[in-house]
Design a protein around this nucleic acid. Structure first.
Length: 570
RNA sequence: GCGCCUGUAGCUCAAAGGAUAGAGCAACGGACUUCUAAUCCGUGGGUUGGAGGUUCGAGUCCUCCCAGGCGUGCCA
């Protein structure tokens, strides 16, 4: 790939120049190679001379001059017919020193074209890496409490988690997607009691709604479904039996609903891990006992505490309450150890920012167990849902909320996924439903999808005119007909994709992908408006169809990483 | 009080420590007998919350201050 090649050329020039004493040798130099913001600064630029100069106390422009001279010889086409060192193939058409000491590269057109051929050759595989070398990573996300429908915030984690998983897969990790079910503890009982109350109400009984119960209308919906299933027979059962059975059936309904919602969103989990099972199997109890044995936990004031403060936590944390009930923290330790026991070398959890106080203790616990650094927690800021500028509450307790399902059906799956991913998870997301719907024609997702559909339309048009749209790569003479500014800009934008995928994956920043796709689409739309792809000039048409097919491929690869569809027409 | 996140154009947001801080929306003016005008071109719009510091170079890193969000349970 071009970036690698340029880096290698720079390294060579550094070595040679250092060997001849023209520049100070500084061992490994950590330099930046990037696409400059301004076109006048070439196709690529590096700060290597400035880095080296500040290390050696020399003038950066002098060092840059030396390097440029060597690069010109090794990689630049320069004057026509001049031999270049890299196997006779020129990579660059120009290398210049600029500004405070930048070295700006302009790619040789033939090199651009050969890179396009590579893009086409790699097809769906373009942008994939093998950085992970198959290491197994478990990504746990959404993990909503199964006591009601998903809310809008969960949608953000679903979109983010899934995109992150796809990115990690693209760079060579083997990824497991997991949903942790908090199907144990007090909230399940509140849920059961709430459903029970509605059930009895619907059966015509006088009941007092539990003080802390969930007021959402979905509770009544669940109760209605239950009563339709069993004809209300549980109204006369013993309270214990009724509560237990209704709770269980309500849980299964809520869970089924969550699965359906995620399914409709195109997010699929490999595993649904039940907290209850951890308790049932004794894993939680056993782990607490083990921690006591290992001296990592102790008893105090009737409770069992874990000594997390020895591993970076602010204070020690309770594992077993003085009433004998294990805390959520205890089961979470057992849970995370279970993940590791299943062969995952790295754990990623996506949590809402409201859980950030929990991160350190969890990491401390794993460090105590001999797994420092295996748990990575991605904290996502919350979603502020709005409708026409007015905030919409998302409280399960008061029941006033917009569900994830409603959002998806209003805004659409692609737009919802895309919009959730346009912003870094570090920033709270204002999601205005009304705006998303009203402006759906101006939505960035349509802008990107439109580029894809437009290309498909060009290809259809070509087919209709009896054009042969083979997958074959045009010969060099034909390809050399490409060279217009918009064509080269589009090609260069295409080439950014590989590194972008890598960076987005390693930096956990799927939002960069959305931005990139918008830039790529913009480069295409501009090209489209300036040049006809299909014209009377058969060779030029062939060449442009090739460029456009490369664009199509990258749009497709990128959208697929986001989990957004690439429509053939709109 | 302490901890995490955020503060950039009227609005929503981008910018692995790089050159003249960029997009979209909103406003205004242009481009369809031509492969999809859900597009393109142009114009206006900024003391990057404030003050110091680090260095060749700071929206980005450090310190302090201001503002907002979220935490800071023997809740989950």
């Amino acid at each position: 790939m071009i970036v690698k090649e340029l880096r290698e050329l720079i390294r060579q020039a550094l070595m040679e120049a250092a060997a001849s004493g023209e520049i100070p040798s500084a061992g490994e130099v950590d330099f930046v190679l990037e696409r400059p913001r301004h076109k006048a600064h070439g196709d690529w630029a590096t700060n290597v001379a400035m880095v080296l100069a500040s290390k050696a106390g020399r003038n950066p422009r002098d060092i840059a001059d030396v390097l440029v001279r060597r690069l010109e010889e090794s990689a630049c086409a320069g004057k026509a017919g001049k031999e270049v060192a890299t196997g006779g193939v020129a990579v660059l058409s120009a290398v210049e020193v600029a500004g405070p000491g930048f070295i700006n590269f302009t790619l040789d057109r033939d090199r651009v074209l050969s890179e396009l051929v590579r893009v086409a050759g790699e097809g769906e595989g373009y942008g994939r890496w093998d950085l992970g070398r198959g290491e197994r990573v478990l990504v746990e996300f959404v993990s909503a409490n199964p006591v009601g429908p998903l809310h809008v915030g969960h949608g953000r984690w679903a979109a983010l988690g899934d995109a992150l998983c796809k990115l990690l897969e693209a760079v060579g990790y083997e990824v497991g997607r997991e949903f942790y079910l908090n199907d144990y503890g007090a909230q399940m009982e509140v849920f059961a009691a709430s459903v029970e109350a509605r059930y009895l109400e619907l059966a015509g009984r006088e009941v007092e709604f539990p003080a802390e119960g969930y007021h959402g209308s979905y509770i009544r919906d669940i109760a209605r479904t239950l009563i339709e299933e069993d004809g209300g027979r549980l109204a006369d059962a013993t309270p214990e039996e009724r509560r237990r059975e209704l709770g269980e059936r309500a849980y299964l309904l809520a869970l089924a609903h969550i699965r359906e919602s995620l399914d409709a969103f195109g997010v699929h989990f490999d595993t649904w891990f039940s907290e209850r099972e951890l308790h049932r199997s004794g894993a939680v109890k056993d782990e607490v006992a083990k921690l006591l044995q290992e001296g990592l936990a102790y008893s105090k004031e009737g409770a069992v505490w874990m000594a997390t403060s020895r591993f970076g936590d602010d204070k020690d944390r309770v594992l077993v309450r003085s009433n004998g009930a294990p805390t959520y923290f205890a089961s979470d330790i057992a849970y995370h150890l279970d993940k590791l026991a299943r062969g995952y070398g790295h754990l990623i959890n996506i949590w809402g920012a409201d859980h950030h106080g929990y991160v350190r203790r969890m990491q401390a616990a794993l460090e105590a167990k001999g797994y420092p650094g295996v748990l990575e927690v991605i904290l996502g800021q919350l979603v502020n849902l709005k409708r026409g500028g007015e905030p919409v509450r998302m409280s399960k307790r008061t029941g006033e909320m917009v569900t994830f399902d409603e959002l998806v059906s209003e805004v659409g799956r692609d737009a919802a996924r895309y919009l959730f991913l346009t912003r870094s998870q570090d920033t709270t997301l204002d999601f205005d439903i009304q705006l998303a719907v009203e402006e759906s024609m101006e939505n960035p997702v349509y802008y990107v999808q439109y580029a894809h559909a437009r290309i498909c339309s060009i290809l259809r048009y070509g087919l209709g005119r009896g054009m042969e749209l083979s997958e074959e790569v045009p010969g060099p003479e034909t390809l050399r007909l490409l060279g217009a500014e918009e064509e080269m800009d589009l090609a260069l934008k295409i080439f950014e994709f590989e590194e972008l995928v890598r960076d987005a994956a390693l930096d956990r920043a799927p939002h960069r992908l959305t931005r990139y796709l918008e830039e790529l689409a913009a480069a295409f739309h501009l090209f489209y408006n300036r040049h006809r792809v299909i014209s009377d000039d058969a060779d030029l048409t062939t060449a442009r169809l090739f460029l456009v097919r490369c664009t199509l491929q990258v749009l497709r690869n990128g959208l697929s990483l986001l989990g957004v569809s690439a429509p053939e027409s709109m």
